[in-house]
């Protein structure tokens, strides 16, 4: 079984810096592995343990993203590669999903399962996984928290939303977006760190993914940010005591 996990390095959201084009300035901001993507990695590693699988971690971004690929290798994935090209810069969800779908078509033809984190800290659109799935004509399931079973043709997963827990049987290959997974966080072993340090990380550019310049980056992105601002919904706060608070409650009823 071949599993691809798409992971993303996200900026520390407490430390915002922007480029002139109002895109996030990733080079000057502290970065971390997106928390939901970490859950996707853990899910893949759990499947590897249970069924045996070849797990590849793939990230799209600047060379700095090699940091999270190292983290993935240290955790125990088999292969890690980076999709990086200056022409990818400024990609929105639509353009990003084109790059990721091209990566699967060009480099992972025999993939059975593709995992994403449900959403990214920085964008939170939660659309990249589903959009990539649609481009590949693969079925997708959001909010997957547990994988019950996998065989050659199907995977049985549990997806949880606030009112129900639904079990789906999905035809492979499929895309799953992982959220609130049951698989916890493993701690890398020292051998993992050594392997991560010595690993030869492959890097693919736009031509190796056979994409055209106009399909990706700013040119291939239908959406653009016209303005970014700090919003201001301030009210005039008056400090009160507990008596007054109870009175405010009485005013409601």
């Amino acid at each position: 079984m071949n599993i691809v996990v798409f992971i993303k390095q996200v900026p520390d959201t407490d430390d915002v810096k922007w480029t002139e084009n109002n895109n996030i300035d990733r080079t000057n901001t502290e970065s971390i592995l997106n928390p939901a993507d970490r859950q996707a990695l853990e899910t893949a590693l759990n499947l590897k343990q249970r069924y045996g699988a070849f797990v590849s971690a793939v990230s799209m971004g600047p060379y700095k993203s090699l940091e999270i690929l190292k983290e993935a290798i240290a955790l125990g994935v088999d292969d890690a590669l980076l999709l990086s090209d200056s022409k990818f810069i400024g990609s929105d969800t639509c353009a990003t999903s084109k790059v990721l779908a091209a990566c699967i078509k060009e480099k992972f033809l025999n993939t059975n399962l593709i995992l994403f984190g449900q959403s990214a800290l920085d964008g939170e659109t939660a659309q990249t996984g589903p959009s990539t799935a649609v481009r590949l004509s693969f079925p997708f399931i959001n909010n997957v928290c547990e994988i019950k079973e996998i065989n050659e043709n199907n995977i049985i997963v549990i997806s949880e939303n606030e009112s129900e827990k639904i079990t789906y049987k999905v035809k492979l290959p499929a895309v799953l977006c992982i959220n609130n997974s049951v698989y916890g966080y493993s701690i890398p072993k020292i051998e993992g760190y050594i392997r991560a340090h010595d690993y030869n990380y492959k890097i693919y550019n736009i031509s190796e993914l056979r994409l055209k310049e106009e399909e990706t980056g700013v040119k291939g992105s239908p959406t653009y940010v016209s303005k970014v601002y700090k919003h201001n919904e301030y009210r005039n706060c008056r400090f009160i005591n507990t008596d007054e608070l109870l009175n405010k409650i009485k005013e409601v009823y």
Binding site: P11, T13, D14, V16, N22, I24, L121, D122, G123, E124, P222, T223, Y224, V225, S226, K227, V228, Y229, K230, H231
Partner: peptide
């Protein structure tokens, strides 16, 4: 809201 809710973005679409 964008960037962990730190900022607000106005977004337009070309297509």
């Amino acid at each position: 809201p964008t960037f962990g809710g730190q900022l607000t973005a106005d977004i337009l679409c070309k297509t």
